[in-house]
Amino acid sequence: MHQALADSTFRIQCGVSSGSGFSYRNNNIVVTNHHVIEPNLLNNQPIAAITENGTQLRATLLSHSDKTQYDFAILELEDPLPANRNVLQPNLTAEAVRGSKLLFSGFPHGIHDLLVHEAIVSGPVQQHAFYIDGSVNGGNSGGPIVNSAGELLGIVTQRRFLGGQSLQTLGQQVAQLGDQCAGIANRGSVQIMGIDFRQFANMIAQGLGAMSQVIEANANSGIGIGFKIQFMNAEFERLGL
């Protein structure tokens, strides 16, 4: 079952955004998160679905939900699905029961190595989502979640870690500092006690930015959130897929 799950999973690349996705219901359909392919919606960046061995398939966006609600995107492959790939099928009666074992797969941190993880359902979040106890990281977004019978339960969508809001605030402050440094550079160098303040402030901004990115990338409390597949199935039915 672990290999079958891996054989259904892709790395999704869209501009600078990288996440995961999987074949679902039909050979020419791949699903992922809305936020993974957002560069396509913003400035028409191309979407690629990439297999574990590096085969790259072109994909176009068929439909998507609001990323603040169900956060899914349905893609259609422009290239044929390679041989020996697995297509996950729906089971609308499968439930994410607290304590039940599950598997999820994807490309954490955007690395090119496909990883399959074991986890459990920790509890409900809302009607459309559930907590999973497992190593969910950036890049896992859009990956499949299946139960011990291999039945699709949901799609990896979020991770939870302490200090996330603080890191977002720091990122905004670093961006503002960077803008101020750029403004100073346009007006020439400023010397304070023999120190080039423009260069000094720019170094601080770059250092803080790099630090916040490293902390956020590696922060992992072992808590992830999966969104139930039923809501995406409703869109499949509407599209007649």
Rank of each mutant, 00 (worst) to 15 (best):
Q199F: 02
S166R: 08
V121C: 14
A4W: 07
F200Q: 15
I215K: 03
G106P: 09
H109F: 15
V146S: 01
Q172C: 04
N140S: 15
V156D: 09
Q180L: 15
E52M: 10
L177K: 07
M193R: 14
S212C: 08
T9A: 03
N147G: 08
H112Y: 08
R238P: 03
S221N: 10
G143I: 04
G143D: 06
C181L: 00
A210S: 12
I37N: 00
Q199K: 10
Q206S: 11
V31E: 03
G139Y: 02
N43C: 13
N53Q: 15
F161G: 03
I132T: 05
L41D: 08
H112A: 13
Q165V: 13
G138I: 05
D7W: 00
P124S: 14
A119M: 04
C181V: 09
I29G: 04
Q56G: 04
I155S: 05
F200P: 02
Q45I: 05
N202L: 07
Q13F: 06
P90A: 13
A94T: 01
E118S: 09
L152D: 10
V97N: 07
D66V: 03
G226A: 12
N84K: 10
A73P: 03
N40F: 09
T157A: 12
G134R: 01
T51Q: 05
S100F: 07
T60H: 08
H34Q: 08
I47H: 03
H109A: 15
D133A: 12
N218R: 12
P82S: 07
F236V: 11
E38K: 10
P90M: 13
V146F: 02
D196M: 02
S221C: 11
L88F: 02
R238V: 07
A201L: 09
Q230Y: 05
G178Q: 11
L153N: 01
S148D: 14
E78S: 11
T68D: 15
M203H: 11
R198Y: 09
S141L: 11
H64C: 02
G163R: 02
H109R: 13
N53Y: 14
I155N: 06
R238L: 08
R198W: 05
S166Q: 15
D7L: 07
M193C: 14
C14N: 08
G54N: 07
Q176G: 04
E38R: 10
L5R: 07
A59K: 03
N26G: 00
P108H: 09
A234E: 15
Q3D: 15
P144W: 07
D71V: 04
F236W: 08
N202F: 04
V174Y: 05
Q230T: 14
S221H: 09
H112Q: 13
H34F: 06
A48S: 13
